[in-house]
Design a protein around this nucleic acid. Structure first.
Length: 996
DNA sequence: TAAATATGCGCC
DNA sequence: AAACGGCGCATTTTTA
């Protein structure tokens, strides 16, 4: 109990907030009247403006209860003990704000660590603390100051706060705002953190903002050294307190804002102090606060800094804080002795006390340690990319167009000798035999090289007319094979040069560099310029170098025998900036520690070149298949139309919606899932749920066939290379935000399973298919270091069977197939953040009925079985929430844009899927290298965790071993301690279907 | 009329 | 409040 509660108890509750130190006003028990004449401070001080009585809690008890001074002091002690046991939880828990204080503390601690890290890497913010606040590194670390670099909005519930509250304007608020600025944690030990305050950069948010749920209490910084023992300084701002404590070693209390309370630690520090130096701000509020403190604490003496508003300003103006403290203490001594002898004293200004003091010179020297910049940034000396002078950049760079082969040969040699790194670009024209093929001009077999452009760091570009030099082109370009080259989308250049018989090595690629830096994919539009693609040379040049190039002529006629000057200048522009772009991006990659991400993709480029040479394809069998699909679909369509109407378009969502609404009972419609636009969903899943309708089964079958015909029929066959007869697809190293590859035209990664894959053959040889078994779960096990899951893999048991036995608590041997399926579903869903409801609906597809509550029970058991997996997941989730990004083991960073909703599942999935993708990339690189030992052997497909290779029949077994070995090696490079039993499964067959 | 969105489904 | 991820492709429907 404190003085306020006491007054309330005896019927004089002080309820009106007042003043800067948390004082309250209420009626006075001594003069008995009024409603606001008595001012009380939580620390125990009171003052009645009517009866002009003032003092502390004990004094009040003397007067109201008629106690002697000794009795009154004892009574205060007993009250205070009650305070400890009784009011502590009340203060600690803010029922309207915090539901779970432990959660709040844990999250705030995470936030503190995060912001500390941020501050350590922010020279500007450190500079602010060094230069403007005079703090040194040791102080910054001691108080665990941090930095919020960007304004953040975080879920309230993640802090254990009430998930939402109704703002005055009626809007429901779900998030807390964390402003940009310096974070100041308070009282980290032993009770844990009680508040986190941000000193905002943007004054529009006020100077200080506290995280909701903070218990705002004055901060106490314990003194060090002996000079000011027994002295306590009181200031307003925490940063002033830190500065004063740092420079003088005095114990300092920072009051904070008007809403702070003093807290036990502070009160006892003040009570036991011999002298209290009040250094309030030089304003009205500060003056009043000083008054009230002098009433509550007899040993307190007001002693504002002589210049400036507060300690920091005075220090900025040149005040030596140690000298000042000495003067203040000496002044306080005189004031206090005068008070004890009840003499009136005239307050001397602090300046004159300081002037009269005989200070020794050595004490004033170097009070402020020189700032030490601690940084984990890489040594810039090792990063130095070749420097380009402005003169070189601004100098006019044109082109030299060569049509004569021997002249070209000399020029290329000169280029190679004069440049350590050469930029290369190729323009192609459709091959005249196949002008209408979908990939004419793109695929090497369907194209002719029209122009080769080369450029160094400076000087003109070299344009070699490949038509004019045809026949000697490889000879001319031969010196490039052993030279370091850079291109944008270098796979294209590598593929075309390889196709004309050149043994080109791995090129540097600025497109892959940009992807490693920004994680933008091949499909994304350029931010700020929706017309261009994010990874296009135009977009990257603009964003990285502020260089603008036109792409208007990219699709001009490159087949004509004589190229126009405009075309030539366009072609030159494409290479002229490439070397500088490479240098700049490489530097940025190193600064971001993303070079490995880039290199992993770069080294995989030869694999892509191989992959894009196509998969041997049995066109005859394919045609038969299409016939069979049509044969089955025809009657089926008749049957469906006889029910649904001859004119119905079975692909139209509206017409299907209308049909079902008209033919299904109202109660079924009510329970029928809808799409986001309110139409009845007609997915396979929902239709099967209404399978009692006779038309459903044939409709679903028809849909399957239509899908086959439209996507996997003649349209797909159009991608067969007329020269080689192989089916050619595109592969993209930058196809997915997670770092997985993607494939298109046609998508090789979504070919229907089963007999369909018989059309993919080994040509004259065999097909060997190898896949990583349970790669994502293995990755999750390794990244989380979950003991139980790793052990299961080490034992080589079936992971889903093992999980089932753990979840259901039965022996491994007794796990039936259904339980195993369940475990599988629970594992993947739960791992990636599936809800209980989501699991319930998903499980229904597997014929397992459960309620959402039961589903959550399963998820709980899953986490109980794999506890480290659970905490690892939590860490990711928290990190994703704060930084709005997650990263893979290989270093790829995925950032969630502000507008993105529901990042939770993505943030859990990305590290796992992405790391698995990185292992696959490395495996593909190794396989491509090793496969060169075998004649006619080539990688023909790569499906996320599967690698498909063709090889001669006599080599098949050796190639299978090779695959096994390379894939295992790739996995171990990422996770050296990981168990590899059963990691790679491999099959051989005449075609892809049989190789499984 | 062309581009963007919506829906469903093929794969891992 | 709300939640399993990543893709590509065909077709319909809406929007600019």
């Amino acid at each position: 109990m404190n003085i306020i509660e006491y007054l309330t108890d005896i019927g004089f509750p002080p309820t009106t907030p007042d003043g800067p130190c948390g004082s309250l006003r209420g009626p006075c028990p001594l003069c008995g009247e009024g409603h606001d004449r008595l001012a009380v401070w939580e620390n125990g001080g009171f003052y009645c403006r009517r009866c002009e009585v003032k003092g502390n809690f004990a004094k009040l008890l003397e007067l109201t209860e008629g106690l002697s001074p000794t009795e009154a002091r004892e009574r205060v002690q007993t009250y205070r003990q009650k305070t400890v046991t009784h009011t502590q939880p009340e203060i600690d828990l803010m029922p309207n704000e915090i539901l779970d204080r432990n959660k709040w503390r844990a999250s705030v601690l995470d936030l503190i660590e995060e912001t500390e890290e941020e501050l350590a890497h922010s020279p500007e913010a450190l500079d602010f603390l060094y230069q403007e606040r005079g703090l040194n590194d040791s102080t910054i670390r001691q108080h665990r100051l941090g930095l919020v670099r960007e304004y953040q909005r975080l879920w309230r519930s993640d802090f254990g706060l009430k998930p939402s509250y109704l703002r005055q304007d009626g809007k429901e608020v779900w998030k807390v705002a964390v402003s940009e600025g310096i974070t100041i944690p308070h009282r980290l030990r032993p009770e844990g953190v009680i508040s986190l305050t941000v000193r905002c950069w943007d004054a529009a948010y006020g100077r200080y903002r506290s995280l909701p749920g903070s218990r705002l209490e004055a901060m106490c910084i314990a003194g060090s050294g002996t000079e000011f023992e027994g002295v306590v300084a009181v200031v307003e701002s925490p940063l002033c307190a830190m500065k004063l404590n740092q420079d003088t070693g005095v114990t300092v209390i920072a009051l904070g804002g008007v809403h702070t309370t003093l807290g036990e630690e502070v009160v006892s520090t003040l009570e036991s102090a011999e002298k209290i130096i009040l250094i309030m701000d030089d304003d009205a509020a500060g003056f009043e606060a000083a008054e009230s403190y002098q009433i509550a604490f007899p040993q307190a003496v007001s002693c504002p800094v002589p210049r400036g508003k507060d300690v920091t300003e005075a220090w900025q103006a040149g005040l030596d804080l140690k000298q000042y403290m000495r003067a203040a203490v000496s002044r306080a001594d005189r004031v206090l002795s005068a008070r004890r002898s009840d003499h009136k004293v005239t307050m001397e200004p602090i300046q004159s006390v300081m002037a009269s003091q005989d200070d020794s010179a050595e004490d004033t020297a170097s009070l402020i340690p020189a700032p030490v910049f601690v940084s984990s940034e890489p040594d810039t000396a090792t990063l130095a990319a070749p420097v380009v002078t402005p003169a070189q950049l601004s100098g006019a760079r044109g082109y030299r167009y060569i049509t004569d082969p021997s002249e070209a040969k000399t020029a290329v040699l000169e280029m190679v000798q004069g440049n350590d790194l050469l930029a290369i670009d190729i323009e192609t024209a459709p091959h005249p035999d196949y002008p209408d093929h979908a990939k004419a001009g793109l695929s090497p077999t369907l194209s002719r090289i029209r122009l080769v452009q080369l450029a160094g760091r400076c000087g003109d570009a070299l344009l070699i007319d490949a038509f004019a030099c045809s026949g000697e082109l490889t000879d001319i370009l031969d010196p490039l094979c052993t030279h370091k080259l850079v291109a944008h989308n270098a796979v294209f250049e590598m593929a075309h040069l390889t196709h004309v018989g050149m043994a080109v090595g791995i090129m540097e690629c600025t497109m892959l560099m940009w992807n490693a830096l920004k994680n933008e994919t091949i499909r994304e539009r350029s931010p700020g310029d929706p017309k261009s693609m994010a990874l296009s040379l135009k977009s990257v040049l603009w964003r990285a170098l502020s260089v603008e190039v036109s792409k208007a002529l990219q699709k001009s006629d490159w087949s004509r025998p004589v190229l126009e000057p405009e075309q030539l200048q366009y072609a030159a522009d494409d290479v002229l900036h490439l070397v500088r772009l490479h240098d700049v991006l490489l530097n940025r990659l190193r600064m971001d520690r993303s070079e490995a991400v880039y290199q992993r993709m770069r080294n995989c480029q030869p694999t892509i070149v191989s992959l894009q040479q196509g998969f041997p394809f049995d066109g005859e069998v394919h045609k038969q298949m299409i016939e069979e699909w049509r044969a089955e679909a025809g009657p089926l369509e008749k049957q469906v139309r006889s029910v649904m109407g001859d004119d119905i378009n079975l692909n139209s969502k509206h017409q299907l919606d209308a049909f079902f609404r008209a033919n299904v009972p109202a109660e079924s419609i009510a329970a029928w899932p809808t799409t986001s636009k309110g139409l009845l969903s007609t997915t396979e899943e929902t239709l099967e749920a209404n399978a009692d309708l006779d038309v459903v089964a044939p409709l679903l079958r028809l849909r399957k066939l239509e899908k086959r015909i439209s996507t996997y029929g003649e349209k797909m066959a159009a991608f067969v290379d007329p020269v080689t007869g192989r089916l050619m697809a595109n592969f993209h190293l930058t196809g997915a935000v997670t770092g997985r590859m993607s494939s298109s035209q046609p998508g090789f990664q979504n070919m229907p399973r089963g007999d369909f894959r018989k059309i993919f053959t080994g040509g004259t040889g065999m097909v060997i298919a190898a896949d990583f078994s349970q790669i994502e779960l293995r990755v999750a096990a390794e990244m989380s270091k979950d003991r139980a899951m790793r052990q299961a893999f080490r034992d080589g048991v079936d992971i889903h069977q093992s999980t089932a036995s753990r979840i259901l608590g039965v022996d491994m041997a007794k796990v039936d197939e259904q339980s195993r399926q369940m475990a599988k579903v629970i594992s993947f869903g739960t791992l990636y953040g599936q809800s209980g409801e989501g699991l319930r609906t998903y499980a229904r597809d597997f014929g397992v009925e459960m309620t959402a509550v039961e589903a959550r029970q399963f998820q709980k058991r899953f986490f109980a079985a794999y506890p480290q997996l659970r905490s690892w997941r939590e860490d990711i989730r928290k990190g994703a929430r704060r930084k709005e990004s997650v990263h893979t083991k290989g270093g790829r960073v995925r950032t969630f844009k502000g507008k993105e909703t529901s990042i939770f599942p993505k943030s859990l999935n990305t590290p796992v899927q992405g790391t698995a993708g990185e292992i696959q990339l490395r495996a593909l690189t190794l396989v491509e290298q090793e496969l060169s030992r075998f004649e006619d052997a080539r990688i023909v497909n790569a499906v996320h965790d599967e690698i498909v290779v063709i090889a001669r029949e006599e080599d098949a077994d050796a190639v299978a071993r090779l695959l096994q070995e390379c894939m295992t090696r790739a996995f171990l490079e990422m996770f050296p301690d990981a168990p590899t039993m059963g990691l790679v499964e491999c099959g051989v067959g005449e075609n892809w279907a049989e190789a499984k």
